[in-house]
Write a protein that binds this DNA or RNA. Structure first.
Length: 340
DNA sequence: CGATGTCAAGGAATC
DNA sequence: GATTCCTTGACATCG
């Protein structure tokens, strides 16, 4: 059976670890499966057509097939998996978790069988520290829904909900204060899963560390965001270590890794008012994700990381294809035993 | 059928 | 105060 074979390989890999050589335990990717339009990540029909979580879970089962086939053990679920489930004007969609209990239990059991680490990352509209109470309230409801969903899968506490701090609104201290106050008022079901990621514009590592100190919330280190937003110039590995240290004993920390899109690239574009496509050179904006992960950069980052362990969520446009290619790059560099 | 418009939701920068 | 960008794809409708 595939699962048993994977477990055996897992045990073997642990034994093969050279003493002192540090590695992530898992490589994961987010939501969409590149090049496989048949593998949908959620039921995306409009509300008029009554989309449902049960349909999304059938899709997810097919994605799990793919993950099992490729030995991938970390995956970010779509936050739209239960369509309109917190939409204020569509209460008829608010009970999908209850309506899907059995399917949720089954897919959760399968995730555990496959030793899959799952996570979620609510959309940009979820802003806990917003000065607008209605935005904060909607965010709290959304977090609670995400937690209920992961709980319905009966997943352990490595299954996290990732968020950003939010805005600054011209007063950083007040913005941090709102985050802390509202975090502390969150239900335990949310607090035990919520983790905070440094972002690319407003809240750098040095600015979320104080929030961790006040709340205990674990920090997800994002390498690209740190490269783009690092006002006091903290060295990447220093930032990494500080974030890893915020995780409780017994939970495996995770980080986000991506490669920045290079300055110029050729893309196929549809001309204005015309149906024909042609190759055009466009400038990339700073902080954009590249299609792939640079294997050399990744290896160098690991080599300098020291005696620490963490899982790695890859954020690349080519999704799981970037993960598979990175594996090949690492294998070519003699690090295959070392990487999941 | 291909092209175009739309989608629940926010924040920041710019004017 | 209003507009645009961010970023994303696929559904839904229009011509």
């Amino acid at each position: 059976m595939v699962v048993e074979a994977d477990r055996t390989r897992a045990a073997q890999s642990e034994l093969d670890q050279p003493v002192g050589l540090i590695s992530p335990r898992r490589l994961g990717f987010a939501v969409k499966i590149a090049g496989r339009p048949d593998l949908k990540d959620h039921d995306s029909r409009r509300w008029q057509n009554e989309p449902h979580l049960r349909v999304s879970l059938e899709y997810l089962d097919r994605i799990f097939d793919y993950l099992a086939e490729h030995g991938i053990r970390m995956y970010r679920l779509s936050s739209d998996i239960a369509p309109y489930s917190t939409h204020p004007d569509l209460p008829q969609f608010h009970h999908q978790i209850e309506e899907s209990r059995e399917a949720l239990a089954a897919i959760g059991a399968r995730a555990r069988d496959l030793d899959l680490r799952l996570s979620m990352h609510p959309a940009q509209y979820i802003v806990l520290n917003s000065p607008h109470e209605h935005v904060a309230d909607a965010s709290i409801r959304d977090f609670a829904h995400h937690a209920d969903f992961l709980d319905a899968l009966d997943l352990d506490l490595d299954a996290k909900i990732v968020t950003h701090t939010g805005g600054v609104y011209g007063d950083r201290d007040a913005a941090a204060e709102r985050f802390v106050r509202r975090y502390e008022a969150l239900p335990e079901s949310v607090r035990r899963r919520l983790v905070l990621e440094n972002d690319e514009v407003s809240w750098a590592v040095e600015e979320i560390l104080p929030i961790h100190e006040r709340t205990g919330i674990p920090l997800v280190f994002d390498t690209l965001h740190h490269a783009v937003n690092n006002p006091s110039g903290i060295a990447p590995h220093e930032a990494l270590h500080r974030c890893l240290a915020t995780w409780p004993v017994g939970q495996m920390p995770k980080i986000h890794v991506s490669t920045q899109r290079s300055a110029n690239r050729e893309v196929s574009r549809r001309g204005p008012g015309s149906a024909t496509r042609s190759l055009v050179s466009v400038a990339a904006k700073p902080g954009q994700h590249d299609d792939w992960i640079d294997g050399g950069d990744f290896l160098a980052f690991l080599a300098g990381a020291g005696e620490v362990r963490f899982d790695v969520m890859l954020e690349a446009k080519q999704k799981q294809l970037a993960l598979l290619r990175l594996r090949e790059d690492l294998r070519a560099a003699g690090q295959a035993h070392d990487i999941w």
